[in-house]
Design a binder for these strands. Structure first.
Lengths: 350, 350
DNA sequence: ACGTCCAAATAGATCGTTAAAATCATTGCT
DNA sequence: AGCAATGATTTTAACGATCTATTTGGACGT
């Protein structure tokens, strides 16, 4: 009858829990919890005693239990887009920067894929429902983006790498000033003496593409240079860049420089120039955008995006959203709209 | 006094739980659980009724609660290495492939960073302790890898993209046959008529590098071609490739072809050849490894790794580890050692 | 009629944490 | 002394699943 109740004695090597620590420190488990989450509620002496036991046992709270109770997982979802030639590198660097910065704030990055907006939204729902995700980082925003409105409607904390581009500006975003970057690149070409500068861009209607184009246009206008008939609309494709460059060089009043909307297209132009036995930078100048390894390899002048800063700003914004939505203490409200300056990397091609 | 106890009536829009579903289907919560996890225990009619309610309410089990109880998070950790020129693209593609494949099996990918083996191990511990991670995918295995032994000792399920390279072969791994790839590239050079083929490789001692070198050596030996004095040991760096290529071309018995251990080095060689006014592929041949965008852009023949297959094999292995460790039903044991064939992508440079 | 066996379903305990309420001790004030 | 206000700590209840019994109700054999 005196059924000596389960006494968990002996050298137990199991994971320490709040209860374990509490027993060892001769306090209640809640006091231990308070030491961690609300130290001001605990007497100094007690706190020190508990902290010592925590240190000694190596106790760490179990995320699953915390999440169940608090509805916060300390997980942030970031999409990993399908590999596209020339873009993988950029995204990898961004992911790394985000992961590193998130880690510093006690968050982890969860990856997911999705081929379309609606596909991605399906993923959001699953991630929110199943994994209790805290926030999202979106990339590749575009006009009429269904994802941002969906998330906004559900009051899900999120930030985008990319401006709303005409959509409602009701969420924090971080972006790189493409116009400024392209303007710098164009100004660099002008300073090198070029007077007829083509812009190899994407079809009108893409926010990013039009923005960069505007930079080229502004630089030319300010210097009193022509732009008419010098803007080409191409797909993001190496051979399109090459063809367009060739066509322009064969025209009757050929440009001497090519400011390009991306490295991929710029490399196409670079290749065409080289194939004609000309030397990029001496006979014809080219600039790209994104500062990829390929650009570095062939010596292509390009505009580099400050990805570490972008990641930092993204997580600043998220932290701000996440902390203010629960308690009102930390009101270190981060800027909701961040536009960062890119950097021109000069190489042989211009 | 008859305090009509909390009756959660009315249009409650809260997340459905097991209890909600159970009430609606007029069964116990455990029966609902059984419908999901052990349908054979439930009578057909009951099962259908419960399934209907699940469908209707959109019920989905909460991961945090499952994890707390079962000690499985359905989370797989993959490292994201610090961006290194020329490697980011490869890793991005791998990450994407892993994420996609994991999603199909009900798993999610968690990212983490770490600059050294010991740093990474610290991260393992945190991830395991805090987030109850199910498994790890490691990349960049090397001789004397502390990470694999640490994980093995703790019986943590993991798979590596990369062979143990001399370390204990006690864990599942997936790799691409570098020797075979380099042999194919070299054979291609030989078929094109080259009789003196240099190998621009990494310093001896790296498993991956030596493996690829062995492929070049074998191909040369079989064709009766010389290798003595033709192997260079370089750092993974563009300019090193360029310098080495130039030095060899200036030697008294210069090679006509350069089989390179990586695209980065190959692009260096390619650049040196171009800079001398020669045309790669016509005057001197070059091959690389990894089929990066940069290689595609300049027309560099390269060896492509089948990353989708690698990811698939990695997750097959993990699934096998994760299912057999709990229940013995699914014994569809995946191969523990998978060596995949790379593919030679022929372009202008060779 | 009675016990046995099996399938189907249920009840209750449990995982580790935090939130809210209750207890206990101390201090301050009139 | 009495009694409120404050502080420190403990107790009790969730959170939403799964796991481990235990109960229920037929079918069956003797």
């Amino acid at each position: 009858m005196p059924a000596r109740a389960s006494r968990n004695t002996g050298g137990e090597s199991k994971r320490p829990t709040l209860a374990t620590v509490a027993r060892a420190a001769a306090v209640s488990h809640q006091t231990v919890s308070n030491v961690i989450n609300a130290p001001h509620l605990v007497r100094d002496e007690t706190r020190r005693r508990v902290e010592a036991v925590i240190e000694e046992t190596g106790y760490r709270p179990l995320k699953a239990a915390q999440t169940l109770r608090t509805r916060r997982s300390h997980l942030i979802a970031v999409i990993i887009p399908a590999p596209h030639p020339g873009r993988g590198e950029l995204h990898n660097a961004f992911l790394h920067a985000v992961t590193k910065r998130a880690q510093r704030s006690g968050y982890r990055v969860l990856l997911f894929t999705g081929v379309s907006d609606s596909d991605e939204i399906r993923a959001y729902r699953e991630l929110l429902d199943d994994y209790t995700l805290d926030a999202f980082v979106l990339t590749g925003t575009h006009a009429g983006d269904k994802r941002t409105s969906w998330l906004y409607r559900r009051r899900v904390p999120f930030v985008t790498f990319g401006r709303p581009w005409g959509g409602p500006d009701n969420h924090p975003w971080v972006d790189v000033d493409g116009a400024s970057g392209e303007r710098a690149a164009t100004a660099h070409l002008i300073a090198a003496g070029h007077r007829r500068i083509a812009f190899l861009g994407w079809p009108k209607g893409s926010g990013v593409g039009d923005d960069r184009c505007a930079g080229w246009e502004a630089a030319c206008r300010e210097a009193g240079l022509p732009t008419a008939g010098l803007r080409m609309e191409l797909q993001e494709d190496f051979s399109e860049g090459r063809t367009a460059c060739g066509a322009l060089m064969d025209s009757q009043d050929p440009p001497t420089a090519f400011a390009c909307v991306s490295d991929t297209i710029a490399l196409g132009a670079w290749n065409e120039i080289t194939a004609r036995g000309r030397v990029p930078g001496r006979d014809a100048a080219v600039t790209g955008f994104d500062d990829t390894t390929a650009a570095a390899v062939v010596g292509l002048t390009s505009v580099a995006q400050p990805l570490d800063e972008v990641a930092d700003a993204c997580l600043d914004a998220l932290e701000s959203l996440l902390t203010t939505s629960r308690n009102g203490r930390r009101r270190a409200t981060a800027r909701r709209r961040v536009l960062l300056e890119p950097r021109l990397v000069r190489r042989d091609s211009a």
